[in-house]
C-alpha cells in the first residue's frame, strides 16, 4: 500500500517520468503559489475521480467506460471551480483557464483507465493521492526555480534587493528550459542507478 503511494512520487512521477500533464505544468509553474494551488486542485480531482471510477468499475460496461470517466472527472473539476470561485478568488484568477482544463489533464484520465478501473477503491485512492502529490511536487520544484530566477521572489517576497532577474524564466521559454534540464537530471540519476540500463521510455504526453 505504501508502495502504491510512493511510486507516484518517485519511480512513476507523472511529470518527470511518465511525462503526463505537461501542458498545465509548463503554463502554471510561474510561481510557487500557483504551482501549489494547481497541484492541490488536480490532486483533489484525481483522488475523487479514482475513487468513483473504482467504485463503478463493475457497473460500467466496457464499451462506454471512457465517456463515464469523463463525466465523473468533469463533475469534480466543476466542483473545484465553484469552490475556488467562491472561497479562493485570487488563486482562481491566477490559475485562470487551467482549472477547467484539468478535465483533459491526461494524468487523471490516465490513472482512471490504467489503475482505478482495475483496482479496489482504497488502493485507487492511495494511487490518486500519490500521483497527485508527485504532480504537486514536480510543479513546486519548477515553480520555485522559475520564481527565484525569473522574478527574484519566493512566495511573492523579494530575495535579493536591487537585483534584476532573468525575465525569460517566467515566460514560456523559461518553462521549457527548466523542464528540459530537470528531465535530463532525472534521466541521469536513473541511468546511474540502473548502471547502464536502457533509458526508461515515457508513456506519451
Amino acid at each position: 500500500m505504501i508502495r502504491q503511494f510512493t511510486k507516484g512520487i518517485f519511480q512513476r512521477n507523472p511529470v518527470f517520468v511518465l511525462l503526463l500533464g505537461l501542458c498545465p505544468t509548463l503554463a502554471v509553474s510561474t510561481s510557487v503559489g500557483n504551482a501549489i494551488g494547481m497541484g492541490a486542485a488536480a490532486t483533489f480531482v484525481l483522488v475523487f475521480s479514482n475513487l468513483i471510477v473504482s467504485l463503478l468499475r463493475k457497473l460500467v460496461p466496457n464499451k462506454i467506460r471512457i465517456p463515464c470517466y469523463i463525466v465523473v472527472i468533469a463533475t469534480f473539476v466543476t466542483l473545484v471551480e465553484l469552490v475556488l470561485e467562491a472561497y479562493l478568488p485570487d488563486l482562481n484568477a491566477s490559475l485562470g483557464l487551467f482549472v477547467p482544463l484539468i478535465v483533459v489533464n491526461c494524468i487523471i484520465l490516465g490513472r482512471a483507465e490504467a489503475f482505478a478501473s482495475r483496482n479496489a477503491p482504497l488502493v485507487s485512492v492511495v494511487d490518486g493521492l500519490g500521483m497527485g502529490v508527485g504532480f504537486t511536487l514536480a510543479l513546486t520544484v519548477l515553480g520555485t526555480i522559475r520564481e527565484i530566477s525569473g522574478s527574484n521572489t519566493l512566495l511573492g517576497l523579494e530575495l535579493i534587493p536591487n537585483f534584476s532577474p532573468a525575465m525569460i524564466m517566467i515566460l514560456p521559454p523559461g518553462a521549457f528550459l527548466t523542464i528540459g534540464l530537470l528531465l535530463g537530471l532525472f534521466a541521469l540519476l536513473r541511468s546511474r542507478r540502473e548502471k547502464g540500463g536502457v533509458s526508461p521510455a515515457g508513456e506519451g504526453s
Binding site: 463503478l56 457497473l59 460500467v60 460496461p61 464499451k63 462506454i64 465517456p67 463515464c68 463525466v71 465523473v72 468533469a74 463533475t75 466543476t78 466542483l79 465553484l82 469552490v83 470561485e85 467562491a86
Partner: peptide, 23 residues
C-alpha cells in the same frame, strides 16, 4: 449502455446542482 450512461449523467448533474446552489 444508454441507460447506464444516463444514470451516471443524472447523478453527476444532481451533485453539481447541489454544489452550485451552495456556492
Amino acid at each position: 449502455l444508454g441507460l447506464t450512461l444516463t444514470a451516471i449523467c443524472l447523478a453527476a448533474a444532481a451533485a453539481l446542482a447541489v454544489s452550485y446552489r451552495m456556492t
